[in-house]
């Protein structure tokens, strides 16, 4: 653990954390653009999310008279918790002290912390939409969380570690191994990511149709910098899941040393991976329709089944004795 006290890895971790902040709106813009192209629209510029955030930060925040102090604190907590969760996921280099500070269970816990405050903020004003959004969000996440952890456990049992950096190292060391468990875990994690980041078919990030919203319903009352923080946190979460899927299942290309060339390659490769994942997401969002809310549990049950099969597959097929 001593190397953690040295300076360079921490610097690298800080750079990666900032990179998450910087990348998040770009990915959102790219996703919107691809979707627009798929729908035969021109779509906004790639940089539009940055402009939106900048604009919101410059605006005065308006808070309902019925709001409690928690309402104003929540955006900061949500943002910081999501950001820290993201900072634990290796992005361009494996060698992260933050991954030691918080392993993947802590990552799930930090996301849960953010969600807890997001839901509370939704309920604070006392509008019906806020309560509805909070109730739905918590249910979706309650069903998604066991699937996610079970998928993660499958990986952890293969790598004998819950530490993301060790998992990626183990994956890289083993080379190309076809594991049935990884296939299922990947499927489960993709479904969980879709549900947790509020994408179609579970939630529609673009909707303001009152009865179909989940995430939007909770942040309905926010404006100005508070809204900006909430939006930014949501974008970071999307990048986080993208980086998690890309780097845990397809870690090739990530920098294993701190040499500048390795880091440059790592940055380029992860950018390409994320952009490719975003294209896949855009296609699936264009093809699929949003589900009725009470169909979403079926989707998450599928995720759970996949995770379970991944686990059983790991035990039955992969561990010889």
């Amino acid at each position: 653990m001593d190397y953690l006290l040295t300076f360079l890895p921490w610097l690298l971790a800080a750079v990666q954390a900032l990179l998450y902040l910087a990348l998040a709106p770009l990915l959102a813009g790219w996703l919107r653009r691809i979707k627009a192209r798929l729908q035969n629209r021109r779509g906004p510029s790639l940089w539009q999310p940055y402009r939106d955030l900048y604009k919101l930060f410059g605006k005065e925040a308006r808070v309902a008279t019925t709001a409690s102090p928690l309402f104003r604190a929540a955006p900061y907590i949500v943002f910081v918790a999501t950001w820290l969760a993201a900072a634990t996921v290796p992005l361009i280099a494996v060698d992260l002290p933050t991954a030691m500070v918080a392993d993947i269970i802590v990552l799930a816990g930090l996301l849960a912390l953010a969600r807890f405050f997001l839901a509370l903020a939704g309920m604070d004003i006392g509008t019906a939409f806020g309560g509805m959004g909070a109730s739905r969000e918590m249910l979706v996440s309650a069903l998604a969380e066991p699937a996610m952890l079970m998928a993660v456990f499958t990986l952890a049992m293969t790598a004998h570690s819950t530490n993301l950096a060790s998992m990626i190292d183990a994956q890289l060391a083993a080379g190309l191994v076809l594991r049935p468990s990884f296939l299922f875990a990947l499927g489960a994690l993709v479904l969980v990511a879709i549900a947790e980041t509020g994408r179609i078919p579970v939630d529609n990030p673009a909707t303001h149709l009152e009865l179909t919203m989940i995430h939007e319903a909770m942040i309905l009352e926010y404006s100005g910098r508070h809204l900006a923080l909430m939006e930014w946190a949501a974008q970071i979460k999307l990048v986080l899941y993208g980086a998690l899927i890309a780097n845990v299942f397809f870690p090739w290309g990530i920098a294993q040393s701190t040499a500048p060339t390795a880091l440059a390659t790592g940055a380029l490769v992860i950018l390409l991976k994320l952009l490719a994942l975003a294209v896949a997401l855009a296609i699936s969002e264009t093809v699929l329709a949003k589900m009725r809310f009470f169909r979403a549990p079926a989707l998450l049950n599928l995720a759970l089944l996949l995770a379970l099969l991944g686990l059983l597959g790991h035990v039955i097929l992969e561990v010889g004795s």
């Binding site: 083993a174 080379g175 190309l176 191994v177 076809l178 594991r179 049935p180 468990s181 296939l183 299922f184 089944l305 996949l306 099969l309 597959g313 097929l317 992969e318 561990v319 010889g320």
Partner: peptide, 26 residues
Amino acid sequence: MTLAELPLLQQLLLVLAALVLFTSFV
């Protein structure tokens, strides 16, 4: 014997077998 020591073809076989199991669930 662990999975990683098997030849790639047999790994593929296991993956396919697991997928067959999945289709059974479906």
